[in-house]
């Protein structure tokens, strides 16, 4: 990757940003899909599968992002995050609970002392269509209420219109509003249309200071596909090679089964490398995935197939 990746002048103007982003190597869609498909044939069995399941649980950002969310729903989800399987204390806790910004306080209270972080979506999630001032207010409020992680959305309209500078500056502003909170930047890859754009948006977000780049809001299809995650993992890998800084990746939306989760971990392992097999650098944004991980875990430890009625619906 060009060493100029982090030269300050890269972001000096929209033209210089464009020159940088359009100078990145292209992505051949068919080749990227083929690579992801090939890696998804990896067969993860027995001990490897057991480790993968526990790792995946520790990487889950347990998420509820509905208009109908209530404090009760958030409390229930938080309880699940700390003890995913009440009957089995050996199950690790998840990484974080992800909620709308107005419910951060509820989650913070419910998770106090648990080690499970509170993540909040912000910046006019999911569309991102609001004035910057509103996005910053949203962010500051969530952080003030105790959110340790902010999941912001980029302005896809500005990106698609070629106004990279606007997207970039907004991320910088939100990052500043985050203070110590970690910033995950949602690219909403389903709206970016091409893998070239996914790569450019990844670099743009990384350049602007993202701690994580995240695929999707979960409100747009397609959400986290394997090729998209592959391309984002290549971006953080290349960025690390150029600068030594590791940026995290979070696929979100559509990851429902243990098989999906394991395929993601295989991608992480073989594309970015084992250093990324860590909840600090890889997360899975999901809700129903957790129960499937628990069922597969039981299957592995007991040898019998479990039924869904034995796992809590939260």
């Amino acid at each position: 990757m060009p060493d100029s990746a982090f030269a300050p002048e890269t972001a000096a103007s929209n033209a210089s940003l464009r020159a940088f982003l359009h100078g990145l190597p292209g992505v051949d869609e068919v080749g990227a899909r083929a690579r992801a498909a090939d890696l998804s044939t990896r067969s993860i069995k027995t001990t490897a599968k057991a480790r993968a399941i526990d790792l995946a649980i520790r990487m889950v950002d347990l998420t509820t992002l509905e208009g109908a969310d209530t404090p009760g729903k958030v409390r229930a989800l938080s309880a699940k995050a700390v003890h995913p399987d009440p009957a089995d204390p050996s199950v690790p806790r998840v990484a974080a609970v992800c909620v709308y910004s107005d419910l951060v306080g509820v989650a913070v209270e419910a998770l106090a002392g648990s080690g499970v972080k509170v993540a909040s979506v912000a910046t006019a999630f999911p569309a991102g269509r609001a004035p910057l001032s509103a996005k910053l207010t949203d962010t500051r409020r969530a952080v003030a209420d105790g959110a340790a992680e902010i999941d912001m959305v980029i302005d896809r309209g500005a990106f698609l219109a070629g106004d990279y500078r606007k997207v970039h500056d907004e991320i910088i502003a939100v990052k500043e509003a985050c203070g110590d909170a970690h910033l995950k930047v949602i690219l909403e890859t389903g709206e970016l249309a091409t893998y070239d754009n996914v790569r450019r948006a990844s670099w743009l977000a990384i350049h602007a200071g993202a701690d994580f780049i995240k695929t999707s809001t979960g409100k747009v299809a397609p959400a986290a596909t394997l090729p998209v995650t592959l391309i984002m993992l290549e971006a953080v890998r290349d960025h690390h090679a150029a600068t030594g800084r590791r940026v995290g990746v979070k696929p979100a939306g559509g990851i429902r089964t243990t098989k999906d989760a394991v395929r993601n971990l295989v991608l992480v392992n073989e594309v970015a490398g084992p250093a990324w097999l860590d909840p600090d650098l890889f997360r899975l944004g999901a809700s129903s995935l957790l129960n499937d991980l628990l069922m597969q875990r039981t299957r592995l430890t007991t040898g019998t197939y479990p039924g869904p009625d034995y796992y809590t619906l939260d």
């Binding site: 067969s43 993860i44 069995k45 084992p274 097999l277």
Partner: peptide, 11 residues
């Protein structure tokens, strides 16, 4: 870190 995800044999 490596052994966290060393693939087990899958014959």
């Amino acid at each position: 870190m490596d052994q966290i995800f060393e693939y087990a044999p899958a014959p």
